[in-house]
Simulated assay, not measured.
Amino acid sequence: MELPVPATEADVLEALRPVQDPELHRSIVELGMVKGIAIDGPTVAVRVALTIAGCPLRAEITNRVTEAAVALDGLERADIDFTVMTDEERAAVRELIHGDPGATAGSQAAHGHAEGRAIRFADPECPTRVLLVASGKGGVGKSSVTTNLAISLAQRGKSVAVVDADVWGFSIPRMLGVEHPPAVIDGMLVPPETHGVRCISMGFFAEEDTPVIWRGPMLHKALEQFLTDVFWDDPDFLIVDLPPGTGDISISLASFLPRAEVYIVTTPQPAAQRVAQRAGFMAQKVNLTVKGVIENMSWFTGDDGQRYEIFGSGGGEELAERLEAPLLGQVPLLAELREGADGGRPIVVTDPDGEAAAAFAAIAETIDVSLAPTRRYHRELKIV
């Protein structure tokens, strides 16, 4: 009987090559995180260099490395020892996955130039679809729609990222249930991820009870950094939660993201849709396409099974007609939807078979399939 050949250090290194850093989604071998391997009988010791001290995902890295190592013949235990990368090693990681931080906009893209790096999402060759979620006024549940729509797209197997551009009323991290701030690697922000959605927000840099008192140029610069200094890694969808109205931020993002699709959130109330239409007309004036309308708080279903239209009816349909865009769906009014938003428990996660989750799933499918740009499919089929 032929005895199995004991695993070697080279074998362990190859076994670790498919293991990805949970935040950077790159091989820990490719990133230079594996600093040492030693085998002593059935035990293998692996030294891993974390990109930052106090990495919140250390336990996940331990599990991934252990699972890959003990899968080899003859190895029954893995001892993981951690160290931290040097500044030079972090700089090398940033350049590997995010490019040269000193590169200019003119050398990287033909559109959407900012003051320093190019905005990748403005490049016609970028595969990411950018969705701007807008509303005419506050209080219509725009951020709740953004949060649940993002997770619904992630549940369809898509890579999804969210920019919380509502710098005065930031709420996306709380609604998603994000538990730790972005990591910083050589000046590059790595957005935290939960429910398959990565996000960046002013909420990571300002306290909730501290007002953000900034003028237009400062807001413009902050948004530029959200789009250029964050490691987004070409997600399938970048969803931008805009502040209500048609102010500086919306105008800046229109110039930064000329390929963006606009989705308007309103309620059934006629007065709300009349205000919401201004956001749609603003988008059209800056040459962005309004791709659809989402009606929130459409009805409340009582214990008797009856639907009660608390805020009236017809607002979403009327707005869609005015903007010549489809009404993508109607989301019911639920106490659980509001409570989940306040507590970081999105309803599409806590009640995936419920009425609201079904509405968001249908809207996500329409955006992903029916409203997908035909030009992308043509390019994949090499027709154009």
Rank of each mutant, 00 (worst) to 15 (best):
G157M: 03
S159W: 00
S159Y: 00
V160L: 13
A161R: 03
V162A: 05
V163F: 07
V163L: 14
V167S: 04
G169C: 07
G169R: 02
R174P: 04
R174M: 13
M175R: 01
M175V: 06
G177F: 03
V178C: 04
E179N: 10
P181G: 01
P181S: 03
P182D: 03
P182F: 07
P182I: 09
P182T: 06
D186F: 07
G187K: 00
G187W: 00
G187S: 05
M188D: 03
V190W: 06
T194Q: 08
T194M: 02
G196D: 05
G196E: 07
V197Y: 09
C199W: 00
I200K: 02
S201Y: 07
G203H: 14
G203I: 15
F204H: 05
F204Q: 08
F205V: 04
A206Q: 01
A206G: 00
E208P: 15
E208T: 14
D209N: 14
D209C: 05
T210A: 06
P211F: 06
V212D: 00
V212A: 07
V212R: 00
G216K: 04
G216Y: 03
P217F: 03
P217C: 01
H220D: 15
H220E: 13
H220L: 12
K221Y: 09
K221C: 03
K221H: 13
L223Q: 06
L223P: 10
L223R: 08
E224L: 08
F226M: 09
D229R: 10
D229P: 02
D229E: 15
D229K: 10
V230H: 09
F231W: 14
F231D: 08
W232Q: 13
D233P: 05
D233S: 12
P235R: 08
P235A: 08
F237H: 05
F237V: 01
V240Y: 08
V240T: 09
D241T: 05
D241K: 04
D241S: 02
D241P: 07
L242C: 12
P243H: 01
P244N: 11
P244R: 08
P244C: 07
G245D: 06
T246V: 12
G247K: 02
I249M: 02
I249R: 00
S250T: 15
A254F: 06
L257P: 12
P258M: 11
P258S: 13
R259V: 15
A260P: 09
A260S: 13
V262M: 09
Y263F: 11
T266A: 14
T266K: 12
T266F: 13
P270A: 12
A271V: 15
A271S: 13
A272T: 05
Q273V: 09
R274I: 13
V275H: 02
A276N: 11
Q277V: 15
A279D: 08
G280D: 10
G280S: 10
F281Y: 14
M282Y: 11
M282F: 15
